[in-house]
């Protein structure tokens, strides 16, 4: 193919692409006005932009003269200028530094100002500590489901699991707790927790001690709670100790009691901070 005809051929493609592009734009506008699916809108946009792209690339690659330019890299500053810059900087610095007392005071004044300014950062967040060390569970708080219903001794059957909150605090992230009822007799509580799990009910914090995800899955056959985020597993029969995955701490246990009216209540808050570890948590 000789050059002129090739060019006119390419020119025709470019022209066609631009026409198609306009069609796409019109299609997008019409589609917008009449309300069409996202697919149609995406397609129309793509045609509008794609047509432009084809035309512009053909133009840039074939319809303008293909030139090669050579830029030379010249050093932009001479060694004389480099020396000059060094001297100017040195001389200026030296003038400032000569006034020892003043220049030191200047540095200190800036530093003190910086420290003072740092105080404002404090306004950005609240002191996290009290909230990290306690939850909304209080002695006597009734356990309620997510819909606010309190839980009666007869409500759960063996191997049933529900998420509970302290009454009045449904949805409180730090107080979410899993309540399980085990088959009679399989739970052998340690002596320090002997009266924490009346009528085979046992409750653990639902906040994973690894990175805080809700520990939502219960494998009843193995009596394990599983965290879906990084697959930590906790042994329900043994203080919810981690037996697999990246978690290092057991899920804190909520001491339960069953009141005379038959409703489940907390004996107290958790005895240790819930959730992932942090520096001030203590060893």
């Amino acid at each position: 193919m000789n050059a002129p005809s090739r060019f006119s051929w390419l020119q025709r493609i470019a022209a066609l692409a631009l026409l198609v592009s306009m069609l796409g734009s019109v299609g997008f506008a019409v589609g917008y006005a009449t309300g069409v699916s996202a697919q149609f809108q995406g397609l129309a946009l793509a045609i509008a932009l794609g047509g432009l792209a084809v035309a512009v690339v053909i133009w840039g690659k074939f319809l303008v003269r293909q030139e090669r330019v050579i830029d030379l890299r010249e050093p932009t500053s001479s060694s004389w200028e480099r020396n000059d810059a060094t001297h100017a900087l040195e001389a200026g610095t030296e003038q400032i530094g000569r006034r020892h007392l003043l220049s030191r005071l200047l540095g200190s004044a800036f530093a003190v100002f910086g420290i003072a300014a740092l105080f404002t950062i404090r306004s950005l967040g609240q002191n996290p500590y009290p909230q990290l060390f306690r939850t909304k569970w209080t002695p006597g708080a009734r356990l309620v489901r997510e819909n606010g219903q309190p839980i009666h001794r007869e409500d759960l059957v063996a191997d049933e699991i529900v998420t509970v909150f302290p009454e009045g605090f449904v949805g409180a992230a730090d107080s979410q707790t899993v309540l399980l009822r085990l088959a009679p007799g399989i739970l052998q509580p340690a002596s320090d927790r002997a009266d924490w799990s009346p009528s085979d009910y046992v409750a653990y914090s639902k906040v994973c001690t690894h990175a805080g995800c809700p520990v939502g899955l219960y494998r009843s056959a193995e009596h394990q709670l599983l965290c879906p985020c990084h697959q930590s597993m906790f042994d329900v029969l043994d203080r919810a100790k981690p037996i697999a995955g990246p978690a290092t701490r057991p899920l804190p246990q909520l001491p339960l009691r069953i009141a005379a009216d038959g409703y489940l209540r907390a004996q107290s808050d958790f005895h240790e901070p819930i959730g992932p570890g942090f520096w001030e948590r203590g060893a």
């Binding site: 995406g42 397609l43 932009l49 792209a53 512009v56 690659k61």
Partner: peptide, 20 residues
């Protein structure tokens, strides 16, 4: 021109991705 064309082509691809 070539670079503008590349940009437009990328926008077109993104429109397809966004739509479909």
């Amino acid at each position: 021109l070539k670079s503008l064309g590349l940009g437009l082509a990328i926008f077109a691809v993104l429109a397809i991705l966004g739509g479909f």
